[in-house]
Design a protein around this nucleic acid. Structure first.
Lengths: 135, 135
DNA sequence: CAGTATCCAGCTTGATACTG
DNA sequence: CAGTATCAAGCTGGATACTG
């Protein structure tokens, strides 16, 4: 169901903006989406730290840990330590993390739409007959 | 329709991550969501620069212009200049900008779900019987 | 009215080296 | 294996002053 944006209440709009921004803050960070994506593709099977390193070749150890910590603090992933030598640490999506699915598909859908606009060259800019300028 | 994340193709996963990240880059910036939100609430009526300033009290002129420029470059909003004295500049959502609606509602929905989790205290952490540690 | 121009503090990312 | 520590570069946001 499409939500209506015909909202004349400014406080309501503020609340929506704040909610969206809060979600974006959780997702932003160069590697967070990649991490979440790998965990989703794993279909519930937890991934070890070394597996994530292998699946995401370009990330540095420092960044991977940093982003994992962030996701953990926002309750998107769960970290489990098995007290062994050598150590074994697994990461898995929480319920909340798994619930990001619809939002992520919506973002992908928009990206695809955008790609089509680029190809077709929609919404052209230029100078109108009556002197208005779009730039 | 829920998209399946059971994607065994690593290149496909990479493409998805890249698409989502590209969308996030467009949306991120402290005031962009607020601006888009106000333009959506205006139901197609363009807003003047001064109107946006009034609707978003905490933003500085510099930031408002900067964020508007960014949105314009990503083809989310269209800027129209009316050659008058004093100058008159209007901003409106493009087709692509308007199409952000579903993605934004998905982000709001997740934010609401998250709020409920906070209230209910889901996915608790702690030490398991068998020695595993979640922290 | 609708911007520009400067300067500056803080955060994010990355390279690199080291460790229980 | 799974981290920590340190340093440095670049980007983001904000305060402030000025302008066609």
């Amino acid at each position: 169901m499409e939500r209506k944006w015909e909202c004349d209440n400014p406080l309501r709009r503020q609340a929506w903006s704040a909610a969206i921004n809060a979600t974006l803050r959780v997702l932003e960070g160069k590697w967070k989406i990649v991490i979440i994506n790998e965990l989703m593709a794993a279909k519930g099977r937890p991934l070890r730290f070394s597996e994530l390193e292998r699946l995401i070749p370009d990330v540095t150890q420092k960044m991977l840990i940093q982003q994992l910590k962030g996701l953990q603090q926002d309750d998107i992933i769960r970290r489990t330590v098995y007290p062994q030598v050598p150590p074994r640490v697994e990461y898995a999506l929480t319920t909340l993390g798994h619930a990001l699915g619809p939002a992520m598909t919506a973002l992908i859908d928009w990206a695809e739409l955008r790609h089509q606009h680029e190809v077709n060259g929609m919404d052209p800019r230029g100078v109108s007959d009556d002197g208005r300028v779009e730039r």
